[in-house]
């Protein structure tokens, strides 16, 4: 099984642990990830000021991906969402397609419909399947509890994601966590947005939004918060200290990527899944896998 990997802006610079663990997990599961060499920004950041240009940028990536004939997977939820949405729009609107292609022409590119874009986790769920993942688990993460954070663009808008998981009652990440033998924690603020989208516009607001979930999980006491998006990571891991200060809370919520958990359960070492690089360290987990 092969797929084209789209890394985006943040992952390859700030979230190497995510990238590393995702690549290793893919390898362990027999998924050959081929890098989309020319990748850059998916266009998402430009959407709010100029969505026409954002669409062209997304179309650029899709045009580059098309030749490989492989499905495109992204580690970042915003990338996956933006590219999937662009594919959806361009595939369905001929006029728009023509307009976009005009702008791609100087780059020697042309968009053609037919790239299947998915988030990496969804790809695993749909193409590899939980059964196959469970079969690869050699080391059960029993006794640990993880709070899944689905984030927004992984599930929504469901018109684009096709409802592979119900945004109102999401189960997919919990099922990954449970596949590792760990406990998936259900919690009140599970569906809350991280606030990353407004960090640039209003840091206080973003902090308040992320703080809500962090405060609940801090009180609840979980092994770690489990993410699948570098944007969410900026808020929950990168900003955690700052948020704690702002809200006058002593926040100590360890943060991991779901791919790291899968890797550990499949027998990869903490180093192989980049656990060292986690800043909000999952101490219990590190302690358990020290040896």
């Amino acid at each position: 099984m092969r797929a084209l990997l789209f890394l985006g802006c943040t992952v390859p610079v700030r979230n190497l642990n995510y990238e590393l663990s995702a690549r290793k997990v893919a390898e362990a599961l027999g998924v050959e990830l081929q890098d989309l060499a020319e990748f850059g920004c998916c266009g998402y950041p430009l959407k709010s000021t100029d969505q026409d240009k954002a669409l062209v940028i997304a179309a650029r990536a899709l045009a580059q991906a098309h030749g490989s004939g492989l499905p495109l997977v992204a580690l970042c939820s915003a990338c996956a969402g933006t590219l999937a949405e662009a594919e959806h729009q361009l595939a369905h609107h001929g006029e728009l397609r023509a307009k976009v292609n005009q702008q791609l022409a100087p780059l020697g590119l042309a968009y053609e419909p037919g790239v299947k874009v998915r988030h990496f986790m969804r790809f695993l769920l749909e193409e590899v399947g939980l059964e196959a993942i469970r079969a690869k688990v050699t080391r059960k993460l029993e006794g640990f509890s993880f709070a899944p954070h689905y984030g927004c663009h992984y599930l929504k808008p469901s018109e684009i994601t096709g409802g592979f998981d119900d945004p109102e009652d999401p189960r997919s990440l919990a099922s990954f966590i449970e596949a590792t033998g760990a406990q998936a924690v259900d919690y009140a603020s599970m569906k809350e947005c991280c606030g990353g989208g407004v960090l640039g516009a209003d840091e206080d607001l973003a902090s308040a939004m992320a703080g809500k979930k962090l405060a609940e999980l801090d009180a609840k006491g979980v092994t770690a918060l489990a993410l699948i998006c570098p944007f969410c990571n900026v808020m929950y891991e990168g900003q955690q200290k700052a948020i704690g200060k702002k809200l006058d809370l002593k926040l100590k919520v360890p943060v991991v990527y779901v791919t790291q958990l899968l890797g550990l359960a499949m027998g990869l070492s903490p180093d192989e899944v980049g656990l060292k690089l986690n800043r909000a360290k999952p101490k219990e987990l590190l302690a358990a896998f020290k040896s």
């Binding site: 959407k47 709010s48 000021t49 927004c152 929504k156 808008p157 945004p167 947005c193 989208g197």
Partner: peptide, 27 residues
């Protein structure tokens, strides 16, 4: 201030798609 979480879009019974509407307004 919209975080583009699409919550409004998902619950809207009239398919206003407010996240997208607001993108249009911001543009």
């Amino acid at each position: 201030l919209c975080s583009a979480c699409y919550s409004c879009q998902e619950v809207c019974p009239q398919q206003v798609r407010f996240t997208e509407v607001l993108t249009a307004i911001k543009n």
